[in-house]
Design a protein around this nucleic acid. Sequence first.
DNA 1: TATGAATGAGGCTTCATTCAT
DNA 2: CATGAATGAAGCCTCATTCAT
Lengths: 213, 213, 213, 213
Amino acid sequence: MTHSSRPSITRLRKTPSQARAEETVESIIEAAAQVLEAEGLEGFNTNAIARRAGVSIGSLYQYFPGKDALTVALIQRETRRFYDDAAAALTQRSGKAALEYLIGASVRQQLQRPMLAKLLDVQESSPALRGEVEKVEFDALVVAIVRRVAPRFEHPEVAAADLLAIVQGLTDAAGERGERDLESLEHRVRAAAFGYLSRVARRGKHSARAGGM
Amino acid sequence: MTHSSRPSITRLRKTPSQARAEETVESIIEAAAQVLEAEGLEGFNTNAIARRAGVSIGSLYQYFPGKDALTVALIQRETRRFYDDAAAALTQRSGKAALEYLIGASVRQQLQRPMLAKLLDVQESSPALRGEVEKVEFDALVVAIVRRVAPRFEHPEVAAADLLAIVQGLTDAAGERGERDLESLEHRVRAAAFGYLSRVARRGKHSARAGGM
Amino acid sequence: MTHSSRPSITRLRKTPSQARAEETVESIIEAAAQVLEAEGLEGFNTNAIARRAGVSIGSLYQYFPGKDALTVALIQRETRRFYDDAAAALTQRSGKAALEYLIGASVRQQLQRPMLAKLLDVQESSPALRGEVEKVEFDALVVAIVRRVAPRFEHPEVAAADLLAIVQGLTDAAGERGERDLESLEHRVRAAAFGYLSRVARRGKHSARAGGM
Amino acid sequence: MTHSSRPSITRLRKTPSQARAEETVESIIEAAAQVLEAEGLEGFNTNAIARRAGVSIGSLYQYFPGKDALTVALIQRETRRFYDDAAAALTQRSGKAALEYLIGASVRQQLQRPMLAKLLDVQESSPALRGEVEKVEFDALVVAIVRRVAPRFEHPEVAAADLLAIVQGLTDAAGERGERDLESLEHRVRAAAFGYLSRVARRGKHSARAGGM
DNA sequence: TATGAATGAGGCTTCATTCAT
DNA sequence: CATGAATGAAGCCTCATTCAT
């Protein structure tokens, strides 16, 4: 289940063997996040990132073979943070509670880091980055949750993808508008998610579902 | 709530007073659309657009004060096309039918023009473009529909924004995955939209709604 | 017998359609030659070349897709100049006179433009440039001369390559030493060239020659 | 004619006083040779050399004050190897045999180590390296050989330089073409060398020679 | 007005070299 | 002494924009 070791844009150029190096790598990724947040995609360039990280541009390129690699590393970090939070969903008693937990994690994440969505979009439009980001684990999590809330869905991956899109669409837009009321937002996201699940089954062949819910 | 008439990046440099000029403007915008579709954001640059439009880069700058203006013009055109299609929703008998119509228009639009979403994202991240795009009319349409489907909502603008986010989130993700089955997609979007509306009311002060549905 | 139209590093990016453009291209190549002569390979960079040409770096890249293309263009120009001079060798009455003419051209060329040799070496060591330069015509010229001086050689291409190597080796080294006495140099080069031709035949299968000279 | 003892780029930073240090120096030079052979001039950089030598970049700079010094050291080593082989020429009975031996050594060297030629060219074009390489000994060898083959030459240094140029020009070109037939190549080089010597005398003041051969 | 040549700020990246550990 | 992380000058190239013709 390990990944193939094909040469990847993503890989670090050198594995940091000293503590200092690891800190540098971390500080660069963090700086990238901050630059993105503060300056937007317009200001997301390697010089600005190095400057904010307090390292030279040379150091940045010691660890990342290129800008894309850094972008991917940032996406990975954010995705992993989200995943690490969201994975606790599976410890919930019921499927419903699991999905609610996932939604809560999503909302928290989005309102803290509204930048991830934009990054992901850019990533998708850059041919070089396609397929570099590992979504597998994450998708699997959502599918697992779907299976618990709605065990008889024929295509849980479709429902999982839809749920993700609903949750992210709503939270992104809310973040965009500067909405800060977590409770209200979470309530509305739940409405959409559970509403989707309870209704998507009502039709025949096109439905994501095979049986009752 | 009308816009001030401050000098805007968006405005065309000259009002095309002759038919030929208007054609040129149109051809440039169309070329921009084609370049975006064919080359992605990577290839979306003024020289490429001028080349594809069959005009000189100089002419492009005769009609648009800058790249941002052209970008905005393209967004406006696409938004208007969508609006012109979606506006027919209001001619439907029932509110339900109106919302269904809107969803249908959204799905059609998205699967035909998957580029709009990306453009809108860039636009949001570019400070220069913020607020240049007229969404007012469009938002008003969705609010009007919401009022018809769920007349007693306290904050129909919130529900309208949410519905838009749900619909676009789902269709964008579907487009991204290359999904082509309109019927299935539409069914699932309806599930999410109507599910949202029917459930969002169930709570007190945080809800977007004041009364029953 | 035309060359395939595969995308080549060599091609100009745009065919200059205005007189000014053509001048610019010419001035850039000439500047490249001057920079190489004055600063050596160390100083042979695009910024220096643009500066000396009196154009912006942007203009350089309007016409040359990259540094390699410019390098190749320079090599082509120098090769062509040499060729245009050397081609008159074929108008000489005898084969001997033809070879002498070729040697004279070589010596003149080398002492005027000692840079070509260096460039050719760079070209050979840069994988990107391999095969971009057309030597065909030139090689054909030398082979034709060899056929006239020594009609019975079995492998005139080998002899041609050897003669070229001898002539260039001697003139390069002389240029390197700063030798300026054309007459003496030419005499010695003739000695080597004709000495080679008259002696190379003396052995069996390994010789470049089949019969008497 | 002796060299001044000005501080030289070339000198090692520290005289390796211990066996281990000497080994390190040797391994770095060997690594430089391998990198040059394997990656060409493009890949000939200090970090790559240190990596291949299995030492840190810091150590490399402990032993060499800079890249140029390392380059020169490599050239010296190769030159010395050649010299050690070629010096046996002087043990030959006749001058003819001596020159033949020299040619044989040249051909062997070139076909085994085609990289030296390229390095020498770079060295010549880099002002920093000019004059750093000791050729004296080597030149003296060739002059000595010339004196034995053609004792009455007025300017044996010129003839020596020419012979070197002929031999290297031919072998370099052959190496470039990938020629592997030593015997044939050697035959042709002899033809050029002896042809040169026998013919260069035939003129008056410009000749490299004063009397008969 | 149309053209397209020209501009140059600014982004990405490399690599020789230094220096703290 | 060895290490390798860090540095930054310098090179390559792009693309939004201007301006002479």
